[in-house]
Deep mutational scan, measured.
Amino acid sequence: TFELKGKVGKVVKIAEDHYLVEVEGDKWIAYSDEKLSLGDRVMVVDVDGLKLKVKRIP
């Protein structure tokens, strides 16, 4: 999972307290300090167990 840091993915689902992002064909639970929208491109900035911390990228 640490090899996911720096990888780019996209938001595929928005849940009440987390996001579902697809990175390299796999779906992961993710969270972010900013509000994300469906389809946003994101970069993995940290890995916390099986959850990814992501940030939006242009």
Score class of each variant (00 low, 15 high):
33 D>W: 14
38 L>Y: 10
47 V>L: 06
4 L>R: 01
44 V>S: 01
3 E>P: 15
46 D>W: 03
54 V>C: 04
6 G>I: 00
24 E>C: 11
17 D>I: 13
29 I>F: 08
27 K>R: 10
38 L>P: 09
31 Y>V: 05
24 E>S: 03
24 E>I: 04
50 L>S: 10
11 V>Y: 01
56 R>S: 05
41 R>H: 14
42 V>K: 00
18 H>L: 09
29 I>E: 07
11 V>I: 12
53 K>P: 00
34 E>H: 09
37 S>M: 08
26 D>P: 14
36 L>A: 05
6 G>T: 01
43 M>N: 04
33 D>T: 12
50 L>V: 11
11 V>D: 00
28 W>S: 02
58 P>E: 06
17 D>A: 07
43 M>P: 01
34 E>F: 12
20 L>T: 08
58 P>C: 07
9 G>A: 05
40 D>Y: 13
31 Y>H: 04
40 D>I: 10
11 V>S: 02
57 I>T: 14
1 T>K: 15
37 S>C: 09
13 K>N: 12
26 D>G: 15
15 A>D: 13
39 G>P: 06
15 A>P: 10
3 E>N: 02
50 L>H: 08
41 R>S: 13
21 V>M: 08
9 G>D: 00
29 I>P: 05
55 K>I: 14
16 E>L: 08
48 D>A: 08
13 K>F: 13
26 D>H: 15
35 K>Q: 12
29 I>Q: 10
52 L>S: 01
9 G>R: 00
49 G>M: 14
31 Y>E: 06
20 L>C: 06
24 E>M: 04
54 V>A: 02
49 G>P: 10
11 V>E: 00
32 S>Y: 04
45 V>E: 14
38 L>T: 12
47 V>F: 14
50 L>G: 11
42 V>R: 00
43 M>L: 09
16 E>K: 10
31 Y>I: 06
14 I>N: 08
40 D>L: 11
14 I>K: 09
13 K>H: 05
30 A>C: 05
36 L>V: 09
43 M>H: 04
46 D>T: 03
34 E>N: 05
41 R>V: 07
5 K>A: 09
29 I>C: 06
44 V>E: 00
19 Y>G: 10
27 K>P: 04
46 D>P: 01
34 E>G: 10
13 K>G: 06
41 R>F: 10
30 A>Y: 00
21 V>R: 00
51 K>T: 11
6 G>L: 01
5 K>C: 15
57 I>R: 04
57 I>Y: 07
12 V>I: 08
15 A>R: 07
5 K>W: 15
57 I>A: 07
35 K>I: 05
52 L>D: 00
26 D>C: 11
48 D>K: 07
43 M>A: 04
6 G>A: 01
29 I>D: 06
56 R>V: 06
51 K>Q: 07
8 V>F: 05
24 E>T: 03
1 T>F: 15
19 Y>E: 05
23 V>S: 01
14 I>C: 05
33 D>Y: 13
2 F>G: 15
24 E>Y: 02
13 K>C: 07
2 F>C: 15
36 L>T: 03
33 D>V: 09
39 G>F: 12
38 L>F: 10
51 K>A: 09
21 V>K: 00
5 K>G: 03
34 E>W: 12
22 E>Q: 13
54 V>Q: 00
48 D>T: 14
17 D>K: 10
9 G>Y: 01
49 G>I: 08
46 D>L: 03
49 G>K: 10
3 E>C: 04
29 I>T: 11
17 D>V: 07
23 V>H: 01
49 G>V: 14
